[in-house]
Amino acid sequence: MSVFLYLFYTINILHILFFAFFTYSFSFLIIQYRVEKFIYKRINKIYKDLTLLESTSFRRHSITTDMATLTRQIDKYAKDKKLEIETLKVREEYRKEFMGNVSHELKTPLFTVQGYIETLLDGALKDKNVAEKYLERANKGVERLIYIVKDLDMITKLEVGDLRLNVTTFDIVDLVKSVFDLLEMKAAKKKISLMFDMDYKQPILVKGDEERIQQVLTNLVVNSIKYGHQNGTTEISIERLIKNKVIVRVTDNGEGIGKEHLPRLFERFYRVDKSGSRKEGGSGLGLSIVKHIIEAHDEKIYVESEVNVGSEFSFTLEKA
């Protein structure tokens, strides 16, 4: 108290207040500077650690001490990495499934051919009738292998852009009629009717690769015949979508496809029927080829289906 009273009466109160303010300000600035430097070092270290993993995201921005900004950036980075990891896991699963499907599709005809050839070498070659029958069956196995390899080659070319499209103007109505003529006998065996939804008296001209679009229609109609019910129908309609687009629909009243299969329907070798003895043949590449051909035309393909009701595949084309 004596010291306080002495200072109070001997020193000007303004000097005391000035000294207190100066001391407070000086201490505040020193602490502020040291704290900012400390935080900056820590944040800088976080940025450096992150830039080792993701250089493109963080080097473009100046380092900030704003914790909200840093938190948002780290959260974004974490979400991006989580998505990337999940995508890699999905791709890995897809790769494993794809390799398993490829081996399954190839080994069946390979073992068939091998079995017939070994039988012939074991002595069946001496019997002319048996030899001829076995050679024909082995030849069918080789044809199936060639069919699968050709389809794989086509998909690869479509994916990398090596397959060039010969874009011309053609009548889509005439093309559908040609496909119906080609598949008429195949449909007749299952008593399935191939028809238009209406009588198209005028041509509908579109732009595209006529040969590839014929392949698309053939694959879709063949699938509708394979999985259609006896005495069923496969109907094609051609509708004006917008001013410069038409949409071609292939509709059937067959088995239909479950909703859980629709997202993966266009994957290579993906089959709805997972049983070992598949009741219908084919390479398992048809729909994947269809999708790639349509996308090569910069168009879209759609599918709607319901089990035991039927399916509808549709794709767009540019109107000529």
Rank of each mutant, 00 (worst) to 15 (best):
L7M: 08
Y9H: 12
Y9Q: 12
T10K: 15
T10A: 06
I11A: 04
I11Y: 08
I13P: 01
L14S: 06
L14N: 10
I16K: 03
L17R: 01
L17D: 01
F19R: 00
F19I: 05
A20D: 01
A20K: 02
T23C: 07
T23Q: 02
T23R: 00
T23H: 01
T23I: 05
T23A: 15
Y24E: 05
S25C: 07
S27M: 10
S27C: 09
S27F: 15
F28M: 05
F28Y: 15
L29F: 15
L29G: 00
I31Q: 06
Q32V: 02
Y33T: 13
V35H: 05
E36P: 00
K37Q: 13
K37V: 02
K37C: 03
Y40E: 15
Y40G: 06
Y40V: 03
K41C: 03
R42K: 15
R42L: 13
I43Q: 02
N44S: 15
K48A: 12
K48G: 09
K48V: 04
D49N: 14
T51N: 13
T51K: 05
T51L: 06
L52W: 03
L52A: 10
L53D: 03
L53Y: 08
L53W: 06
E54G: 02
E54R: 06
S55C: 02
T56R: 11
S57V: 03
S57W: 06
F58L: 04
R60Q: 02
H61E: 15
H61F: 14
S62D: 13
